[in-house]
């Protein structure tokens, strides 16, 4: 595996059993994501975009094939090991933000750091840095219910980057936002990729969102149908 390749899928397949029927999502899917890449994955509903994202995030296991991450094969890891692997390597950004409604922005961003051995003061410092990066230092004590959708998604971005993961996975990150706010969020992701070297994989329906990525992969019926370099 090349030193620059962060993620590699080799002949990956994924099947679901529904009653007596076996539904195939992927067959022999191959894919590579380089370090520092910003990849958008597009495709119609049911094409397997989210399933692919789940497998990249160690949330779902493939039925066959191999998944390599940074020279480590992760498809054979146990659930517990995968959980720890996610904590070390992956930052998630969800369509509906998935913030904890009972925690303020600061405490939400701090969550991934509770899985580390950082001291309280180190955690506070990292949280302040992450919130500053997304421009929400002044909203640290605000509850999610006191913030707009765009602000909540920025808190979610801060949460995704606070533990400095190697890969950020975004599931329709602008699906719940208006165009202007969506552009702000996408510019922020672009900035994280360009200026901070973060590797980002983003699933989206929105071609305008995909334009912010370095390249777009189109998924249809379990296969990449074309590759298009956007930037």
């Amino acid at each position: 595996m090349s030193e620059e390749v962060l993620f590699q899928l080799k002949g990956v397949s994924k099947n679901f059993v529904k009653g007596k029927e076996t539904i195939s999502i992927f067959e022999s899917l191959n894919m590579e994501i380089d370090c520092g890449d910003f990849v958008a994955i597009m495709g119609p509903s049911g094409s397997g975009k989210t399933t692919l994202l789940n497998m990249l995030g160690g949330v779902d296991q493939p039925s066959g094939g191999e998944v390599w991450f940074d020279s480590e094969r992760i498809d054979s890891l146990s659930e517990g090991a995968l959980t720890q692997w996610r904590a070390r390597n992956i930052g998630f950004i969800f369509q509906f933000y998935n913030l904890m409604p009972m925690l303020n922005a600061q405490r939400n961003v701090e969550l991934p750091l509770l899985l580390t051995n950082l001291s309280k003061s180190q955690r506070r410092h990292n949280v302040e840095t992450a919130l500053a990066l997304v421009g929400l230092s002044d909203r640290a004590k605000h509850m999610p219910s006191e913030m707009s959708g765009g602000q909540q998604q920025r808190v979610a971005i801060a949460r995704a980057i606070v533990s400095d993961p190697k890969l950020i996975l975004c599931d329709e990150p602008t699906g719940d936002l208006d165009r202007a706010t969506a552009d702000e969020i996408l510019e922020m992701l672009q900035l994280l990729n360009r200026d901070h070297g973060k590797t980002i994989v983003m699933v989206t329906h929105d071609p305008a969102a995909a334009k912010y990525a370095n390249r777009t992969l189109h998924l249809d019926k379990g296969q990449f149908v074309q590759r298009e370099i956007v930037a």
């Binding site: 959980t83 996610r86 992956i90 998630f92 969800f94 998935n98 904890m100 409604p101 991934p112 899985l115």
Partner: peptide
């Protein structure tokens, strides 16, 4: 459910 699953996605143990 969504909060539990989100925490698990972030790396919190079962």
């Amino acid at each position: 459910a969504r909060e539990i699953a989100t925490l698990r996605a972030l790396g919190f143990s079962n």
